[in-house]
Write a protein that binds this DNA or RNA. Structure first.
Length: 747
DNA sequence: CTTCGGCCGCTTTAGACAGCATGTC
DNA sequence: CTAAAGCGGCCGAAG
């Protein structure tokens, strides 16, 4: 289809497409237009990644905005994707459209999304906006749900499902466009959303799947190519080398962080000979940047690998590490990235070849190694082939025996992805969504609730109410008993507490746990509070290693006084979870006692990125705890606030005031304190040469900080550092004049 | 007496959203 | 209930 023939898109759109080098639509896109995406019709597009899904959504959003002046909402599963999409859509600002992002940690323009035409948000954020009754929601005329196949996810799927159902019921004229990977039952999704279906496996660039075994690559079409394993190479190394000989890069998916790291280390010797001197120089620069992000073992290992043209990528990395690796890989500087599934679901990092080395992954709940789903493997494989740059893409599984070769072909290469199934009937999901549905007025009786749930994918797929009804009744009981809602006959009303919990976006069970723990707390310590929020279902658990059980049982006895609520017996069910929460609490306490990052990562066996995510969650939950304590008049506000500010900045109590100054973090606050500047007020009046000395002579930094503290005259002109002030200078980095303004959240 | 290499057995194991109000070293 | 890589400890042989 010619771009000129697309109905109802704004006039400038054709010019825009041409400027992007697009003169004809891909077949699935053309089919979407024929099904009426530009005319406000609902659509489910189940097509492979990188085959133009974004353009389908753009067609829908732009035509919908042009048609009635409404707004479009683009829902993504990850914050990183929200940023990526926002940057992509920012191109439309030139044509007079306003684009904004809204996620938990970032809201464009002070939260005033009302004036935006296109809003990008995570599903949880949209859910929260619906709960808080954001006024602009009624102006929505188009909603796009990216990666809808994630409704299958037991943890986060139900949120997406409920949110889409709520948006549709808020505004029956709303156009819904759902983008999905190729799945077994796209027709069911279409039926649920009352949408037309475009179901296609068409790709703009050929993808050949295959299995490597012995010295050969066995491809889907029956052909084989020789990819011999030489010397002490393993199979992935042989494939990576073979790809490099054609000047292509490789993405290797493995099943654990440790495997990713060790595979990257090994592959370094394969990639190094293929890096030109100029590339080596650039790689060294990237490696230096990586070392600067964090002073930990993980960081150093990554930098070492990068110097050789290899890298690993997993969730233990800091956000900056990840984006440095992704960027260098896209620039073809890094030749191979060994990754856990983070990269398959995350931002766009295509590669000539993809190797799926491990096809089984440990799963504690299933009691051992479990095969990956076809959908997941296909998603990884779909990363092969960069449109417009590679002639084709190849995705390869690795077999160690002839039997495995056959099995992999059967199981993944020729297999259809499994159908997507709603996980809404699980109790934890319903707990939070039922409360929210009642609190935000979507339903005010048992019947109303069931009617609403009737509009979800779950109802579409099961057809019978029985199972759902039982769970719903259990959940209503739970919410009633814990004081989140009240029942009168079949009528349901959310209590004040219920409203608060729903607004705070807290799992009701977390709220109950927190309230229960706070109720008879008199002077809660930081550790006690950290433990309380750590044992909440909203906090992701740390793994207990061998020896940990003993260590933390001891700690539990030593500091029993501080721990809130009853200490469970060692033989009780749930004792392990309780201990694991204690481990998390201890980690947070260490962080809030100014323990060094590398000491923490080593002690708890985690990566720098993990500290950040724990700290983030704790901060959020303590904020919620403070609201709950206020709501209940428990008078613990100051204690909770102090614990929260301490984790937020990673400092002891005496530095909380100083660390609150913009530009002053845990390290600078400590150094200022050591020189006798102990509070924000003292900093405001401080002797400048003293401040400069405390900051080890960095004038620009000192000026910024004094300005932020409200100093009368922050200028550092002709100020010399006070020679009497000594600061411990354990860091080796050169005084920088470049102001690195990445933030704590990027850490 | 020290050092190196190989083998055996024990240990460990993916991911990451949200309130609110602003930003490290 | 299922696996497999990596690492540390141990042992023996070589230096």
């Amino acid at each position: 289809m010619d771009v000129a023939d697309i109905p109802r898109v704004p006039d400038w759109f054709q010019g825009y497409l041409e400027s992007e080098g697009i003169d004809a639509l891909y077949p699935p896109q053309a089919e979407a237009v024929e099904r009426g995406v530009t005319e406000g019709d609902n659509l489910v597009a189940a097509i492979p990644t990188a085959s133009g899904k974004t353009l389908v959504s753009t067609l829908a959003m732009l035509s919908s905005i042009a048609d009635g002046g409404g707004k479009a909402l683009y829902i993504v599963p990850l914050r990183a994707l929200a940023t990526e999409k926002n940057e992509e859509f920012a191109a439309f600002e030139e044509y007079g459209l306003d684009v904004g992002v809204s996620t938990g940690n970032y809201e464009s323009d002070g939260g005033w999304l009302a004036g935006k035409d296109i809003i990008v948000a995570t599903s949880e954020k949209v859910d929260s906006l619906v709960r808080n009754d954001a006024p602009w929601l009624e102006d929505l005329s188009c909603v796009v749900a990216d990666e809808v196949h994630l409704v299958d996810d037991s943890h986060r799927g139900p949120t997406l499902e409920v949110t889409l159902a709520k948006l549709q019921s808020l505004n029956p004229d709303l156009q819904t466009v759902a983008l999905s990977a190729t799945i077994g039952n796209a027709d069911e999704l279409a039926a649920w959303l009352d949408a037309d279906l475009v179901d296609s496996t068409w790709r703009p660039i050929e993808l050949e799947k295959g299995v490597h075994f012995g010295d050969a690559l066995h491809l889907e079409d029956g052909t084989q190519s020789r990819v011999p394993v030489r010397g002490n190479e393993d199979q992935p190394a042989a494939i990576v080398r073979d790809t490099l000989e054609e000047d292509g890069s490789t993405l290797v998916f493995v099943n654990s962080r440790r495997n990713a790291e060790s595979a990257a280390r090994r592959l370094g010797s394969t990639t190094e000979p293929f890096c030109s001197p100029a590339e080596k120089e650039q790689l060294t620069a990237v490696a230096d940047e990586i070392r600067e992000v964090s002073d930990t073992e993980t960081s150093g290992d990554l930098a070492d690998a990068v110097e050789q043209g290899a890298a690993f990528h997993h969730a233990g990395l800091a956000r900056d590490h990840r984006s440095l690796v992704e960027e260098a890989f896209r620039d073809r500087l890094i030749k191979v990235v060994c990754a856990t599934p983070t990269l398959a679901a995350g931002v766009n990092t295509p590669s000539r070849r993809v190797v799926v080395r491990d096809w089984r992954r440990y799963d504690g709940t299933a009691g051992g190694m479990q095969p990956l789903s076809v959908l997941e493997v296909h998603q990884m494989m779909g990363r092969a082939g960069r449109p417009g740059r590679d002639p084709y893409g190849e995705a390869v599984l690795v077999a160690k025996s002839h039997d495995e070769l056959d099995e992999l072909f059967e199981r993944y290469v020729w297999a259809e992805p499994e159908p997507v199934e709603s996980k809404l009937a699980a109790e934890p999901a319903l707990r939070t969504h039922i409360l929210a549905t009642v609190a935000s007025g979507f339903a005010n009786s048992r019947g109303g609730l069931l009617d609403f749930l009737e509009s979800t994918l779950y109802a579409e797929q099961t057809g019978e109410r029985g199972r759902l009804e039982t769970v719903v009744d259990d959940v209503i009981d739970y919410l009633d008993v814990n004081g989140f809602l009240t029942r009168e006959g079949t009528d349901l009303t959310a209590t004040n507490l219920g409203h608060t919990v729903s607004r705070l976006y807290l799992d009701p069970m977390s709220a109950a746990e927190i309230l229960h723990g706070l109720e008879d707390a008199e002077e809660p310590t930081a550790l006690g509070l950290y433990h309380l929020v750590s044992r909440t279902p909203d906090m992701y658990e740390l793994y207990l290693r061998s020896g940990d059980e003993e260590e933390f049982t001891m700690l539990a006895y030593e500091r029993e006084e501080e721990l809130l609520g009853a200490t469970p017996s060692e033989f009780e069910d749930g004792f392990e979870d309780w201990l694991s929460a204690l481990k998390t609490a201890r980690l947070l306490e260490d962080w809030a006692s100014e323990k060094e990052e590398d000491e923490i990562t080593e002690r708890y066996g985690i990566g720098p990125g993990d500290i950040r995510s724990k700290v983030d969650t704790a901060q959020w939950l303590l904020g919620a705890a403070e609201s709950l304590a206020t709501e209940r008049d428990l008078g613990l506000g100051p204690d909770i606030r102090e614990a929260r500010t301490r984790v937020e900045h990673g400092v002891r109590a005496e530095l909380v005031d100083l660390a609150g100054v913009r530009g002053v973090g845990r390290k600078r606050a400590r150094r200022l304190f050591e020189t006798g500047i102990e509070t924000r007020a003292e900093l405001r009046e401080a002797d400048k040469s003293r401040v400069l000395a405390a900051l080890r002579g960095r004038e620009k930094t000192a000026e910024t900080i004094l300005e932020n503290a409200g100093h009368r005259d922050p200028s550092m002109k002709s100020v010399e550092p006070d020679a009497d002030v000594t600061v411990d200078d354990d860091e080796t980095d050169e005084p920088t004049t470049t102001q690195d303004q990445s933030n704590l959240g990027d850490f």
